[in-house]
Amino acid sequence: MFNLVMLNVDWNNDRQAVPLDRIFEYTANQIRTQFQQGNAPNLDGMMRLPCLFMEEGDADQIAYVGRIFNARVGGGEVVIQYAVDREVPPLRNRFIFEHRAAFDMTQRFEFSRNHWAVKDTDLFQVLLRFQRAPTRQMPVVFRLEEHEAVDPLQASAMMPFAGAFNAVYAVIEQAARNAGMRCNRADNIWENHAIMQDIVSLIDRSRIVVIDCTDRNPNVFYEAGIAHTLGREVILITQNPDDVPFDLRHLRYIRYLNNGEGVARLQEDLTARMQAILGR
């Protein structure tokens, strides 16, 4: 399934508003039921789906694929914050109209109406079928989702699972909250049978990955390599500069002391760095 949001707006912005009474127009009844909570849309569930952002029209208007990462109801509208996936080439409405049955958009008038629909088809399968959209090369040791889905407000922390680092992790969590993000580490989630798969999945959906090089933990270094390979924003921290691997010493890192004053300063430095990354 995917969200279809059609508005006559500039999709290069990152925030738009959809009239509340236009939610679920051109949506099949069984899908509407699935994504309703009482009389309100289940926005959390809908945000898990990829999104096709379109202007009205069936000609040379440009449409984009991306994700909605925040949605709230207010004043008769649903205000959304979103990110366009720059790895997926923009589409022309003419192309979508030509293949409208595959996109579950069979009614012509739908192309001239501002609305938000949920479509019961796999958006990426349609793109692969008709446009050969790029896919990722898959590893064999762990699993990656075929299509990248970075959560712009997700941060993660890679560090030893030891009690001595709990206070440091609490500081990383608070720094993420200060920057308007949320933070996890793999021992706080259980989505897969193998913890390594949970770690990889968390890194894969994170916008920012904080790597603590303290004590030269080999698992943490392996996770740093995954984060760099996936192109994530990595923030290195350490109590001891000698713990930063030789291959990473050309990168900037945050040094901190493991005491009250030191972790307070670490929180300030991390908050500033996260805010700078989000502000790009």
Rank of each mutant, 00 (worst) to 15 (best):
V168R: 03
V244E: 04
G231V: 05
P160H: 04
Q197N: 13
I195K: 10
V140C: 08
L278W: 10
P134K: 11
F161I: 07
M46C: 04
F124T: 01
Q36C: 15
L127Q: 00
L153T: 09
N192W: 14
F2H: 00
R129D: 03
P41D: 01
V65H: 00
P19E: 11
Q239A: 13
F35G: 02
V79T: 15
I277C: 08
N42K: 11
I68K: 03
I237V: 15
V78L: 02
L127S: 01
L266W: 03
I226N: 06
Y26L: 05
R94N: 10
P218A: 04
V118I: 13
V78K: 02
I96C: 02
R132Q: 13
F35R: 05
E55Y: 06
D14P: 02
Q37R: 14
A83K: 14
P160G: 02
A155H: 02
A167W: 07
G260E: 11
V126P: 01
R265F: 01
P90W: 07
F2G: 00
A186L: 11
L7M: 06
N12F: 10
P19A: 08
F109G: 11
S156R: 09
L144N: 06
I199Q: 09
G231C: 07
D198I: 05
G74V: 10
I31T: 10
D14Q: 12
R132I: 05
V220G: 05
E268Y: 04
R86C: 05
D21Y: 12
A157H: 05
C183D: 04
A170G: 13
Y253C: 06
H193Y: 14
A83I: 13
R182M: 11
P139S: 08
Q154T: 02
R185C: 06
L270W: 07
D269V: 08
R129L: 05
F53L: 01
P134G: 06
R86M: 12
A102F: 08
T121L: 01
P90S: 06
Q267I: 03
Q125H: 03
R100H: 08
N217H: 08
V244W: 02
I208S: 07
A227F: 10
A71N: 03
N219A: 10
A40I: 13
D122F: 00
R205T: 14
A17F: 08
W11F: 08
Q267C: 08
W11G: 03
E145T: 15
Q137D: 14
L257W: 10
I211W: 09
P90I: 06
L20M: 04
G279Q: 14
R205V: 12
D198V: 09
M1E: 02
N184Q: 15
E56H: 03
Q107L: 13
R132Y: 10
F24G: 01
R67T: 05
G57N: 04
Q34F: 05
L278H: 07
V210C: 08
T121W: 00
R177I: 11
R92V: 06
N184M: 14
